[in-house]
C-alpha cells in the first residue's frame, strides 16, 4: 500500500517536473521563432507535412461529423417542429465547438505524434547533437519552422472542418430529409454572429494550435533518446494535447459564451 502511494507520488513528481520543463522550453523557444520566419523554405516544407497531409483526415472527418449532426439534429428538431433550424444547429455546433476541438484532437493524433516521433528520432540518432556541434541551433532550424507551420495550419484546418461540416449538414438535411434549402442558409445567416461565433471559433483554434504544436515539439525534444522513450513520448503527446485542448475549450467557452 505504501509502495503504491510512493509510486503515485513519484509519478506526480515526474509530471510536475515535465510541466516545468515544458514551460522552460517555451521560454527558450520564443526567441528562436523569428529566425524560423526568416527561413520560409523550411516553414513551407513543414506546412506541407503538417497541413497538407492532415487535410485528408480533416476533410473526411468534417464531412462525416456534419452528416451525423444533420441526422441527429433533424431527429431532435422535428419533435419540436423546428426542422428548419437544422442549419443553425449544425453551424453553431461546428463553428463554436466541434470544428476547433475535433480538429485539434485529430491534429494531435496525426501531425502531433508524427512531429514528436520525428524530433525524438533525431534526438536519439544524435542528429540534434550533431547540429549543435556544427553551431546550428536545433531550436531555430528544426523546432521553430514546425511550430510556426503548426500554428498557421490549425485555424485553416478548423475552418475547413467547419465549412465541410456545414455542407455535410446541408446534403443530409436538404438533400435527404427535405429541409427547405432557403431556410437552412437564411437561418444560419441570421443566427450565427460573425464576432461572437466565427471569430471566437478562430481564436479557439489558434489557441489549440499553439498548444498542440508546443506539446508535440516539446515531447520530441525532451524524450529519452531510445526507441522506447520515443514511443512513450508520442503517446504523451496525443494524451496530453487532448486533455489540454478539452480543458482549454471549457475555459474559453465559459469566457466567451457567457449566457
Amino acid at each position: 500500500m505504501i509502495r503504491l502511494l510512493a509510486q503515485l507520488g513519484q509519478r506526480a513528481q515526474e509530471a510536475l517536473a515535465r510541466l516545468g520543463r515544458l514551460h522552460l522550453f517555451l521560454v527558450s523557444l520564443l526567441p528562436a521563432l523569428p529566425s524560423g520566419l526568416l527561413r520560409p523554405r523550411l516553414v513551407v516544407d513543414q506546412l506541407f507535412h503538417i497541413g497538407v497531409l492532415s487535410m485528408q483526415i480533416i476533410l473526411v472527418s468534417g464531412l462525416f461529423v456534419g452528416l451525423v449532426l444533420g441526422l441527429q439534429g433533424y431527429n431532435i428538431l422535428t419533435t419540436f417542429g423546428s426542422a428548419e433550424s437544422l442549419g443553425v444547429v449544425v453551424a453553431l455546433s461546428l463553428v463554436r465547438e466541434l470544428g476547433p476541438v475535433i480538429t485539434a484532437l485529430l491534429f494531435a493524433g496525426r501531425a502531433g505524434s508524427a512531429i514528436t516521433a520525428e524530433i525524438g528520432l533525431m534526438k536519439s540518432t544524435e542528429q540534434l547533437g550533431g547540429m549543435e556541434m556544427m553551431a546550428v541551433d536545433p531550436l531555430k532550424r528544426v523546432v521553430a519552422p514546425r511550430f510556426i507551420a503548426g500554428f498557421i495550419s490549425m485555424p485553416l484546418l478548423a475552418a475547413m472542418f467547419s465549412a465541410v461540416g456545414v455542407l455535410g449538414g446541408y446534403f443530409i438535411g436538404v438533400g435527404l430529409l427535405g429541409v427547405d434549402p432557403g431556410a437552412y442558409w437564411s437561418q444560419i445567416e441570421s443566427r450565427v454572429d460573425f464576432h461572437e461565433d466565427i471569430v471566437n471559433g478562430v481564436i479557439k483554434s489558434l489557441v489549440f494550435g499553439a498548444v498542440a504544436i508546443w506539446i508535440a515539439v516539446f515531447e520530441g525534444f525532451d524524450c529519452v533518446p531510445t526507441a522506447e522513450g520515443v514511443s512513450r513520448a508520442t503517446t504523451r503527446t496525443v494524451v496530453n494535447t487532448s486533455l489540454a485542448v478539452l480543458g482549454l475549450d471549457f475555459i474559453m467557452t465559459a469566457l466567451m459564451f457567457n449566457v
Binding site: 497541413g51 485553416l156 475552418a159
Partner: peptide, 9 residues
C-alpha cells in the same frame, strides 16, 4: 492548402 483554408474561412 492555404488557399482552401482561407476559402473555408
Amino acid at each position: 492548402f492555404v488557399a482552401l483554408g482561407l476559402a473555408a474561412l
